[in-house]
Amino acid sequence: MNIKYFSWIRESIGKSDENLTKPDVVVSVKDLLDHLSALSEQHATALGERVFVKVAVNQVHTDHGAPVNDGDEIAIFPPVTGG
C-alpha cells in the first residue's frame, strides 16, 4: 500500500509518502495507524492525537473503522482548512 502524508503530519514524519506491504494484522484504518505509530518516534508523535488524524482510502474520506487492503492509496492528514 502507498501511504501519503500531508500538512503538519507530513512535516512531523519527515516524508510525503512511503510504501508498505500490509501486515496480516492490519485490517482497518485504525490498525494501520497503530502499525505506523510503532515505526518511529516521529510517526508516533504525528499520529498520536487520533482526533486530529483524518484518513482517505483511495481518495475518498473514510473513518478509522474502515477496512484497508494491499494496493490501496491511503492518505493521512489533519482536518482540512481550505476555502
Binding site: F6, S7, W8, A56, H61, A75, F77, P78, V80, T81, G82, G83
Partner: peptide
C-alpha cells in the same frame, strides 16, 4: 471548507503556522 483536501500555512515573520 470541510471536505476539500487543502491545508493552509501562514508565514508571519520568522514563524510558520498551520
Amino acid at each position: 471548507k470541510s471536505s476539500a483536501p487543502f491545508w493552509k500555512k501562514e508565514q508571519i515573520g520568522e514563524d510558520e503556522n498551520w
